[in-house]
Every structure is written in C-alpha cells, then in structure tokens.
Design a protein around this nucleic acid. Structure first.
Lengths: 348, 348
DNA sequence: TTGAAAGCGATACCAG
DNA sequence: CTGGTATCGCTTTCAA
C-alpha cells in the first residue's frame, strides 16, 4: 500500500498511463461535465494503479482547495471540540476536508484566521472574538460563518444560541427552586472584545433582565478567562455570603471551577446552587451533576458545515440560525438551604 | 484594517510598489541570503502598505507550506487537546502554523493523514493507529513524528510514554494500598490495530507482568472504545464482585465512565479503587479526584514540534523520546474495604 | 546584490 | 466529447 512514489505522481503521469490528456483526467477527478463512461473508466483505473493523489496546493492555485477551516479560541474548553466533532462527522464522504487552527488565547484568533485564509480554505467557521468589521471584509472574500455571535451580517452566516432566553432559563430555574439571591459569574469585558454581540455579553444582559423582572438586584462578578479565576471568584463570593446563593456561571468550564470551591468549602447544593452553560458531556457525570443550559455544540458544527457548503454551491443571501437552549436540571442546583451560623472568625 | 483587496495582493504588486523585482520580494519575506538593508526596508514598507500576505498554495508549489499538521484520533478525549495546546503554544512567533485534522474513529485516521499530506504540510505528527508500514513510507516523504507508539523507526521520530513502567506504577499503587484483586479495563484489540506497539497494548502487557510479579492472577476486560462501554464493563465487574477490587483503566476518559458506575452503585473507593491514565485536568477536580498516571500531553506536543523543526532544519537520524510517567494519587483509590454482605438477589 | 525567466501541478477556456 | 495551452502566485536558478 504505497502512499506516493518518491517523486509524487502527477496528473500528467495519470494522463500518459491512461493515454488521455491532462484535461480529461482533471475532469474525471472533479467529476465535471463532459466525459464518456469509457474515458472515466480508463482514467479511474489509471488513478488507482498509480495511486494518484491530487496536490491540493496546485488545485488551490486555480480552483478550490476542498478544505474547510475552523478556528477555535481554546481547544481546552470542551464545548469547542464538540463543534468540531459535529462538523467533521458531517463531512465524511464529501470531498471536503476539515482543518482546525487553534488560536492561542492571547492573540484573539487573528493569527489562526489569517492562517486559514492564507491557506485558501473554501469556507471558514470562526468562534472567536475578532472585531466585526474585520469579519465583514473577510466575509466578502469567502464563505464564512460565525458561531456564537449575535450580529446579522449580510456578508456572512451566523449560528447562535438564544443566549437571552438561556439566561432567562437559568435564572428562572434558580428562582423557581426558591433562590432570592442570584449571582452571575462571567468573563471580564476585556476578554470579550466582540462587543455587544458576544455570547457572554448577551447572557449577562439576559441575566440582568431576568433578575430584575423578578424584583431582585443583579449581581455580576467579572473574572479573567483563566482556569482558576472562577474558583477564586467563587471563594470570595461564598466566603462572605451568609445566606444561600444561586450562581449562574457563563460557561461550564468556569462552572467546574465554581463547583471546585463549593466542594472545598463543603457547601450543599442548597447553600450554593450552580448553573452552568453549554452542557458539556461532563456535566451529566454523576460525580459532577452540573445543572446547565444545553445548546448543542455538535448540532452547531453540523449546521456550520451545511451553511458553508450551501454558500460554496452558490447561495448569496445570508442565513442566521438560532439554536434553542434548554435547562438540564441536575444536582448542583437545589432548593435554598440556610448555612449554619458562622462564628466571628471568617477566616483570619 | 483591510485583510486583502478584492483581488488579492500578489508578490508582483509588492514588487512594483517597491520598484524592485518579484525575486527580491520573495527573498525578503523568507529572509533569505542576499538582500541589502535598503532593499529590505523598501520591500517591508511596501508589504505593510499593501497589507500583502503570501498565498500558501503558491508557496507550497515550489517551496514550503510553512504548515505543520497534527492528526488526532478523537478530539473528544481530553488528552489530545493538551498535546495540541502544547504544540500550538511552542509555535507562536515562528513562521509555521499548526493545523489539526481530526479523524473520525471509524476510519482510523487514514483520511486525516492523507488530507494533511495532500496539503503538503512540512511536517506531520500522528497519534493514531495506522499500520506501521504505511508510516514508514510516509516518513520517507516528510518529517514525521508519532506519539504513543512503541516502535523505533529509522524513517521517523517517536515520542512515547513509558507505558510499561506506567502500568507497573498503577498496579504497584493499588497493591501497596492493600489490594489483592486488580483488574485491567482496556480497549478491545480490534480498536488498537497498531499491533504490539500501541500504548494500550503495552500498558496491558505491563499490567500482566506487574500483577504476576506480585503473585496475583491478571484479569483483563476488553471494551469497545465507546463512551459508555467502560461504564457497562465496570457494572458487570462490580455487580459480580464480592470483595474489594482495584481497577486499572487504560485511559482517563474511560476511567470517568468507571467512576460513573462506582458512584451509581454507591461504592466507596475502598470497595472499588480506580486508577486511570493520562492525568487529564479533570482528574484533579475535587469532585472527581481520580488517581491517574501522569504523562504530560502538553510536553509531548512541545517535543513533537521541536523534533519536526529539527527535521526540517536538516536532521536525518531518527530520535526516539521517552516520557516518564508518575503516579498522581487521589481519592479514587484507597485501602481495600469489605463490601457488606449482599442478599441473594443480585439484580433480577 | 539584483532581476529575468523557467517552472511547480493543477484547472479552465476554447478550438477541433 | 476531447485535448492543447494559457495561467494561477510564488520560488529558484542563473546571468548580469
């Protein structure tokens, strides 16, 4: 099973072997219009015999690269791999291949997106927080779809969860359990340079509305997007809290950090109820059992690929898909429960 | 901040703008030998003004693609994202860009690897279970490094954890706690077509040796690589077990499934002690607290990039790196504890 | 040190 | 339906 000969097999070699022209071979491999069955058969067998594989670089020079790119902000947040998984799977059997360019959190994905564009992907999905003006320009150049951005461009497609409703669901869930103090832990503004369209920004807005609608006062804690930032923020919060508190966290990865603190302080779900967002697989694990707002990353990945392929096939009007969120109630949230009275020494 | 003009800026445009030849521009962007400072300055400013970005496809036709590819078997197993993260980070500031091609478990990574090769990556790291003969061929064509494969090729570099020792550590840990029945849950042979060189194969071998050396009988349970397979296997095992049992699981993702069962059956760590492998971040979470064998994925990613860049720079002798494992003892494993006598009805 | 010109391996137009 | 040929944007000799 040879992969390629020393000096790789070119379309010319195939043409000679089959006794036809390069143009003919080219048509066959793209199964373009205008080839007889006989010709197709000859060429196909030559391709098989020589184990010919077209060089993508050469194809990209004139036509397509048959490559779709995905740029993700952090591969360590388990939500994003789900998106990729959905996208990858819905591409099996198609001539397109998915490649992922992971961004390093520091550069906001600029580099990754440019790298993908430089590689002439035929379509690009981005999940990061680059300025919208930049995306408008990019969207004019190639099929583009953003995930998680609330913004209706005419130059590209978008997929978003309904974060306003998601936040409402989270707050409603805690409120209905009986909680009357509900705090939102979310990412610091600086880390969400997307502006008003970022998912966390919208969730925070939804949080405020939902809380005020119920006659409570919104409390929002901003944290840096580091792994342990949520842990610390939760510690500050819970160290000083007297009564039960409901905590709505911007995403599950951060919520895991909050659960860490809750566990370390030995608090019950009634004393500190936690609701996350994304419903990563782990949330359902019995040892974690994190109540979360589900928005299917897998489904988003599938949709993204579909939108891209539609654009490639010729669609020009923008499409904006909205994915409905739903509450997955688990044991991390429960009816409020008073904490035993603390003595005066609240940690020296 | 324009990305590209409508019709993208070419090296020719830059050359004209700077009043020099295309060749000169080419030399500057690769900072190749033989350009005066003055020329360099002129060209640089032209590049900046026009916001020129070289097209990778065109570069790849003659020279390099400045792209390193990583193929991973499953993006849902948290160990692999760590490898990618390590690799990505150690590439910041270099002219090389990392792209990831996720394999769908069904095709064993063939498609992903070929896709990467077709895109003329300058180097390739693979973590999957394709036949070694295939890799030998591939390794002759481009810089290649495998992760997790115990096999010393002359055609490519390798990075492996010392899985034999890792298994010994796991068994030793359980034995020292007092366990005298130790079971290994690992992936079914079919899913590890790598043959004798696969990490799980070697861990299983290490398990057998370690257990026999201590005078016990090796028990190995094979499961399919599905999320819930380990959960079911553990249920079968623990439903029929009377005494305490130590369970050494092939990797953490599966171990999480085992912990699920342990939790559902309400068993204590003493009754069912679990040890995983990989030490994914989550293992340290207080709600999980999974004892695991650490082999730094991040470090492996960093090494992989280094090896590839060395090869690209001209090295030809193969290098085989071994990463030492160590036990991270946590609460999922504990000294054996008898289970209360069960009544006769062991699930109807 | 610089630039002119010859490819790299495909695609696409257009004539036969 | 088939094939000759110009062309994509860059790198790389090789002369000047």
């Amino acid at each position: 099973m040879t992969i390629q000969a020393k000096r790789s097999v070119t379309i010319e070699d195939v043409a000679q072997h089959a006794g036809v022209s390069r143009a003919a071979v080219s048509k066959v491999i793209r199964d373009a219009y205008g080839v007889s069955d006989e010709m197709r058969a000859k060429v196909q067998s030559a391709i098989t015999e020589l184990d010919y594989r077209p060089r993508v670089a050469a194809r990209a020079m004139r036509g397509a690269s048959y490559t779709l790119g995905v740029e993700i902000p952090s591969i360590l947040n388990q939500f994003f791999p789900k998106v990729i998984n959905g996208a990858t799977r819905s591409l099996t059997g198609s001539p397109y291949q998915l490649i992922v360019a992971p961004a390093v959190p520091e550069d906001d994905g600029f580099r990754a997106i440019e790298a993908l564009a430089d590689r002439q992907v035929d379509g690009l999905v981005t999940i990061t927080r680059v300025p919208v003006a930049w995306l408008e320009t990019l969207g004019k150049q190639l099929p583009l779809v953003t995930i998680g951005r609330h913004y209706a461009s005419v130059n590209f497609d978008t997929i978003v969860g309904d974060d306003l409703t998601g936040a409402e669901l989270a707050v409603g869930h805690l409120y209905d359990l009986g909680h009357r103090r509900i705090v939102h832990i979310t990412l610091a503004e600086s880390s969400d340079a997307v502006g008003a369209g970022g998912p966390h920004h919208v969730r925070a807005e939804g949080f405020r509305r939902a809380v005020e609608r119920r006659g409570m006062t919104p409390e929002v804690v901003l944290v840096e997007p580091r792994q342990d930032a949520a842990t610390e923020a939760a510690r500050d919060l819970l160290d000083t809290a007297d009564g039960p508190v409901g905590i709505f966290v911007a995403h599950d990865e951060l919520a895991l950090g909050v659960l860490e603190t809750v566990a370390e302080l030995g608090l019950t779900p009634g004393q500190a109820s936690v609701v996350g967002y994304d419903d990563i697989d782990l949330a359902a694990h019995p040892l974690i059992s994190l109540t979360s707002i589900n928005q299917s990353g897998t489904q988003m990945g599938v949709i993204a690929v579909r939108l891209l392929l539609e654009r490639i096939a010729g669609r020009t009007e923008p499409v904006h898909e909205v994915v409905a969120p739903r509450v997955m109630a688990r044991r991390s949230s429960a009816a409020p429960q008073q904490r035993p009275h603390r003595s005066a020494d609240a940690r020296p």
